Simulated scan of single mutants.
Amino acid sequence: MPVKMQIQAMTFASQALDIYDVSDCISIASHIKKEFDKKYGGGWQCVVGSNFGCFFTHTQGTFIYFALETINFLVFKGAS
């Protein structure tokens, strides 16, 4: 993921943590996904939590995995 999008992902995550309780991972993920869809077009996916596994195919250049506080974030655009 380009650096500008990486910064945006972390900004959206930080905003979501300000709005929602840290235990409300579904609302946090939904917030980030909706913001990415608005800014970069549809098809974005977001996984939020402290313990998860995943296996998926994503569009090249659209993947980021990071942590804020004690929560992990995975944001990517699904493959076409």
Score class of each variant (00 low, 15 high):
Met1Leu: 15
Val3Asn: 07
Gln6Tyr: 00
Gln6Phe: 00
Ile7Val: 15
Gln8Gly: 03
Gln8Pro: 02
Met10Glu: 12
Thr11Met: 14
Phe12Thr: 11
Phe12Glu: 10
Phe12Lys: 11
Ser14Thr: 13
Gln15Arg: 08
Ala16Leu: 06
Leu17Phe: 07
Asp21Gly: 10
Asp21His: 14
Asp21Val: 10
Ser23Phe: 14
Asp24Pro: 13
Cys25Trp: 10
Cys25Asn: 12
Ile26Trp: 05
Ser27Gly: 10
Ser27Ile: 08
Ser27Ala: 12
Ile28Gly: 06
Ile28Gln: 03
Ile28Cys: 08
Ala29Ser: 14
Ala29Ile: 11
Ala29Thr: 07
Ser30Asn: 15
His31Asp: 05
His31Val: 01
His31Lys: 08
Ile32Gln: 02
Ile32Glu: 05
Phe36Val: 05
Asp37Thr: 03
Asp37Ile: 02
Asp37Asn: 10
Asp37Arg: 02
Lys38Trp: 00
Lys39Pro: 01
Tyr40Pro: 12
Gly41Pro: 00
Gly43Asp: 06
Gln45Glu: 13
Gln45Tyr: 04
Gln45Val: 12
Cys46Pro: 13
Val47Ala: 10
Val48Trp: 09
Gly49Thr: 09
Ser50Lys: 12
Phe52Cys: 06
Gly53Met: 07
Gly53Val: 04
Cys54Ile: 03
Phe55Asn: 04
Phe55Gly: 03
Phe56Thr: 09
Phe56Leu: 07
Thr57Leu: 02
His58Lys: 10
Thr59Leu: 14
Gln60Thr: 15
Gln60Gly: 11
Thr62His: 00
Phe63Trp: 01
Ile64Asp: 13
Phe66Gln: 09
Ala67Cys: 07
Ala67Asn: 14
Ala67Gln: 15
Leu68Pro: 02
Glu69Val: 04
Thr70Met: 09
Thr70Asn: 06
Thr70Glu: 07
Ile71Asp: 02
Asn72Arg: 03
Leu74Thr: 10
Val75Ile: 15
Val75Gln: 04
Val75Tyr: 00
Phe76Pro: 06
Lys77Ile: 11
Gly78Ala: 14
Gly78Cys: 08
Gly78Trp: 01
Ala79Cys: 07
Ala79Thr: 04
Ser80Ile: 13
Ser80Lys: 13
